[in-house]
């Protein structure tokens, strides 16, 4: 089997030049694209004691059935949910724009509440007034001491997806094999890899790899940018690692992989 180094060394000069040429455009467009998909229009209210108290009321009414009154993910409806509801006391979140190991931003929490997690029991709470969703964000953060000092969080910059050409898909397929995505997600992406049945999350609970051929199963969404973000940030607390180090300075190759995964469901 070819190593990643061997594969990467085969990058053509043409590819390199093309990378440089699109970088500037990518940089500019990414700002607007990012703002459309992941960025919010600002917080509607402040993180105050009053809002935290209100958030508690909203949480107890809407969230505690699954996440539990104490935020440990042990609500009375949690028993049969796969994946299990988030344990907010751990301060560990799957869906972030921040690098693996870092806390999510407030917007990340708000965004997840608003959009839900596809393919799971986490509903999108868009019907909840925006003000209440922000209050929820502030209250949820109180479950973990990690948020206490509001440490700085860096946000992963997602560019504009390149065209999913045949060549890009072909390269992406090779990365899919070499990066061993198939071990969990299977060669065909159906979530039936040889390791699929053995996966557990940090709490020792069943962790099921996504069937990548079904767009609605993608927890964060199945757009190319969402896939890119998942690959870079990883899903903390689950067996899905971050590929930030593996693809450092290899943005184009990462997009190839993104395009390939994207093609599985499109």
């Amino acid at each position: 089997m070819k190593t990643q180094i061997e594969i990467f060394s085969r990058r053509s000069t043409a590819v390199f030049i093309r990378t440089i040429s699109v970088t500037s455009i990518t940089f500019i467009l990414s700002i607007s694209a990012f703002s459309q998909e992941f960025a919010g229009n600002g917080m509607s209210n402040e993180q105050s004691k009053e809002n935290i108290a209100k958030g508690r009321g909203v949480y107890n009414t809407s969230c505690s059935y699954c996440h539990g009154l104490s935020g440990k993910g042990d609500g009375p409806a949690a028993d049969f949910l796969i994946p299990a509801p988030r344990d907010f006391t751990s301060g560990e979140y799957k869906y972030r724009r921040t690098p693996s190991g870092e806390l999510p931003t407030d917007w990340d929490l708000f965004d997840r509440i608003t959009k839900g997690v596809h393919g799971t029991s986490m509903i999108n709470w868009a019907d909840l007034p925006e003000e209440k969703r922000w209050q929820l964000v502030y209250y949820i953060k109180t479950f973990s001491d990690k948020f206490k000092d509001e440490p700085d969080r860096s946000v992963i910059n997602v560019g504009v997806p390149p065209e999913p050409t045949i060549e890009s898909l072909s390269r992406g397929r090779e990365f899919y094999i070499d990066a061993e995505c198939w071990k969990c997600h299977g060669l065909s992406g159906r979530g039936d890899g040889p390791s699929a049945d053995e996966l557990k999350n940090n709490k020792g609970e069943i962790s099921i790899p996504r069937d990548l051929t079904i767009a609605r199963n993608y927890g964060r969404g199945s757009s190319q940018r969402a896939i890119y973000l998942t690959l870079l940030s990883g899903l903390d607390g689950t067996p899905m690692p971050s590929y930030q180090d593996a693809f450092e300075d290899m943005d184009e190759e990462l997009w190839d992989l993104v395009n390939y995964i994207y093609s599985l469901s499109n």
């Binding site: 059935y65 049969f80 949910l81 799971t120 029991s121 509903i123």
Partner: peptide
Amino acid sequence: YGVTCFTCHATVPKLNAF
């Protein structure tokens, strides 16, 4: 709501707390 049955059911038809 785009969710699984288990959001509302411990198992069908047994409702959970949610």
